[in-house]
Simulated assay, not measured.
Amino acid sequence: MTTLVEVLLTGLSLGSVYALIAVGFVVIFRACGVMNFAHGSLLLFGGYLTAVLHEPLGFLAALAAAVLAAAALAGLIELLLMRRRPTETHVLAIVTIGVDILLLTELARRIGPDVLDLGDPWGAGVVSAGGVTVAQSRVASVVVAAALVSLLFAAFRWSRWGLAMRAAAADREAASLMGLRLGRVRLIAWCVAGALAAVAAVFLAAFPTPGLDRATGEIALRAFPAAVLGGMDSVPGALVGSVLIGVTQAAAAGYQRSLGTLGEGLSDVAPYLVMIIVLLIRPRGLFGTREAVRV
Rank of each mutant, 00 (worst) to 15 (best):
Met1Gly: 11
Met1Pro: 13
Val5Arg: 07
Val7Pro: 05
Leu9Val: 13
Thr10Ile: 13
Ser13Ala: 15
Val23Lys: 09
Gly24Thr: 03
His39Tyr: 08
Leu43Cys: 15
Ala51Phe: 15
Gly58Val: 11
Ala61Pro: 15
Ala62Trp: 06
Ala64Arg: 08
Ala64Gln: 04
Ala64Lys: 12
Ala66Met: 02
Leu68Ile: 15
Ile77Gly: 00
Glu78Gly: 11
Leu81Ser: 07
Thr87Leu: 07
His90Trp: 09
Ala93Arg: 05
Val99Thr: 00
Ile101Met: 04
Leu102Ser: 07
Asp114Tyr: 04
Asp114Glu: 08
Leu116Asp: 11
Gly123Asn: 14
Ala129His: 11
Gly131Asn: 06
Thr133Lys: 03
Ala135Cys: 07
Val142Thr: 13
Leu148Tyr: 12
Arg160Lys: 14
Leu177Gly: 07
Leu182His: 10
Trp190Gly: 02
Leu196Gly: 08
Leu196Lys: 07
Ala205Gly: 11
Thr209Pro: 10
Thr209Tyr: 06
Leu212Ala: 08
Asp213Pro: 08
Ala223Asp: 04
Phe224Arg: 12
Val228Met: 15
Val228Lys: 09
Leu229His: 15
Ser242Arg: 07
Leu244Asn: 08
Ile245Tyr: 11
Ala250Ser: 14
Ala252His: 07
Tyr255Gly: 11
Gly260Phe: 04
Leu262Met: 11
Tyr272Gln: 06
Leu280Thr: 13
Leu286Met: 13
Phe287Asn: 07
Val293His: 01
Val295Met: 02
